[in-house]
Amino acid sequence: MKTLDKKYRLPLYFLILLLSAAWIWVSAAPEGSTSAGEIPAPQEGFLAPDFTLETLEGELMTLSELRGSPVLINLWASWCGPCRAEMPAMQRIHEKYGDEFIILAVNATHQDSPNAAAAFVSELGLTFPILLDHDGSVSTQYQLRSLPTSFFVNRDGIIEEVVIGGPMSEALLQTRIESLLEEAP
């Protein structure tokens, strides 16, 4: 490795630091340029894409109407092993936090069936809202690549974390919920 002549070394380093400081100044982020929160995208730091879906009971639920409460959007299917494995923990969390923390279990119905979903919900005694994504539009919006996939959404509708795959442990759910609930309304 060649070394720089000693007399040029310090002036060069000083110049590098000066130019770096200038770059920090020049590349300072213009207001709003790093704020992803206004753009809907299924990624941490972005607005959770809005949707309206029918529940198993036939009611309509819209994500944006839940602003003010933290939400877990869990995409699942009844044939998916890890989805089945994490549902009991989600049920316990739902019983513990109630309406303080909303769980939306979006069934990928285009890859499943409403009857299979209903049988699964009844078998496990799930009481949180089960939404049916009949045409796969929500799966597409959320760029679903693997089941289950979960999105932790804060009170402002911003995705704080994406968990691809599962099963999520109860400890993971609880720590994320506590952190979301700690954020001021």
């Binding site: 770096s20 770059w23 920090i24 300072a28 982020a29 790093t34 992803a36």
Partner: peptide, 26 residues
């Protein structure tokens, strides 16, 4: 890092828009 951070869209910034990662990198 200092150079690349200037192109990032997910930087945490100080009040004047300066990117925290660049200051630490400096």
């Amino acid at each position: 890092r200092l150079f690349l951070e200037g192109f990032r869209g997910d930087s945490l910034t100080l009040a004047n828009g300066m990117r925290i990662a660049q200051v630490i990198a400096w």
